[in-house]
Simulated assay, not measured.
Amino acid sequence: MTRSQDRLLAQWRAEPIREGKLRSYARLAKLDVYDYYLSGFVVFTAILATTTQFSVSVFPMLLCFVAGEVCVLASLVAFDDYTGYTDGSDIANYGPDAPLRRKLRKPLVAGTLTPAEALRFAWGAAAAAAILWTAAVLAGPYSPMWTIGLMVVTFVVSIQYSYGVKLSYHGFQELFLAALGWVLVLAPYALATGRLDSFVLVQALIFGLGPLLFGVYSNTNDIEGDRSVGRTTVASTVSPRANALFVGALSLAEFAIGAIGSLTGAAPWWFVLAMAPASVFRAMQFYRGFRAGDIMTARRMGFRVHRLSVLLMVLANLIVLATA
């Protein structure tokens, strides 16, 4: 950190914050941001909707997989916080001059955890994730090699996302945020069924865009902090207009995936209509962020739109099941 960042940190901690370690570790793991974990509901209902035989071994597999993904993401965000603290970007993005950001969201900056504690937690969560995902592969009725390979790559890249190689600092952030969501739907479905399904692929693509479409709004808010440490995102690299076009294209792509799925028969013909409420709210999110200029409110809207999308996909799967 630079001297100016040290001064900002001292100002930030002018009023000491006291909080229990367990709660601080939960904040470090970002357990309140559960949007990736919703993949389990999509996968389970998709299995029911697209298969005629259901094995009870799916339950322990899904339990181990979802518990593993919680640990993968806890490790990822803990490493991200550690790196963001040590390079000073979190001081800029969450410091006293950023009143819309909550102090306790960053335990290292707030002083409720030390860097050493965060690093130990990150490696511990990674170890737990490796054990749980191995157990998921062993417990599942199928174990396609491509699925195992996908899980291994996802695990390794998650650790290197903001630590080690720091892939998110070199232009891979947006792709990874979406790809992670795709894997969290496709991998457990394949472990349960041994195959891919076109309707599940459509849902996986939509699911992965959800977390990305609140991540890009965060990046838009964090442009200066990211630029100061050389973290390459679309928002920190291109002009404001180009960034707005990029986010708009992602929003449109989410709708287009459902529409193309319905038109081609990859999804039921009515699927695009079922997803229409989420498409409307996604347009409202874009308007709030890039027309009204309220990026942080638009970011919060992104969480709600993603959760609505998950609910609609779950309902679509149950409709397919009921009408089969």
Results as ranks from 00 to 15, higher is better:
Y37F: 14
F79A: 03
Q173A: 15
G124M: 02
S55E: 15
K106V: 08
D32K: 15
R102I: 10
G225D: 04
Y287A: 14
N317G: 10
Q53P: 12
L108G: 05
H170P: 11
T264C: 04
L186D: 08
M151S: 08
I260W: 09
F199Y: 11
V305I: 15
M301I: 10
R227I: 00
L28S: 04
T51V: 06
L9S: 03
A266F: 05
Y36F: 13
R13A: 01
L252N: 02
D6K: 15
I257Y: 04
A122M: 08
T134N: 03
I206D: 05
W133A: 03
L113T: 00
V216R: 00
A110Q: 02
M151D: 05
W133I: 04
A46P: 08
D97R: 10
Y163C: 01
L318I: 09
F281M: 14
P188W: 03
M301N: 12
D226R: 02
R101Q: 14
A74R: 05
L76I: 09
R102Y: 07
N93V: 10
L318W: 03
R195C: 13
L38E: 06
R23P: 09
V234N: 01
R101L: 12
I206E: 02
F199I: 09
G293Q: 05
T50W: 06
V157C: 13
T134M: 00
M145R: 08
T114Q: 13
L177N: 09
F172N: 05
H170D: 12
A274T: 07
D97L: 04
Y82V: 01
E254F: 09
V305M: 08
P115V: 04
A316Q: 04
T232M: 11
G149N: 02
R282P: 06
G124N: 07
G111H: 03
E117C: 10
V156P: 04
R307D: 11
A298D: 04
A46E: 07
C64N: 06
V66K: 01
V156F: 03
M275D: 00
V70A: 12
H170C: 12
G293C: 01
L8P: 05
F59C: 12
L312N: 06
S75Q: 13
M1Y: 10
V58P: 06
T323N: 14
M284I: 13
V183F: 10
T112V: 06
N243I: 07
A179R: 14
L180G: 15
S39F: 01
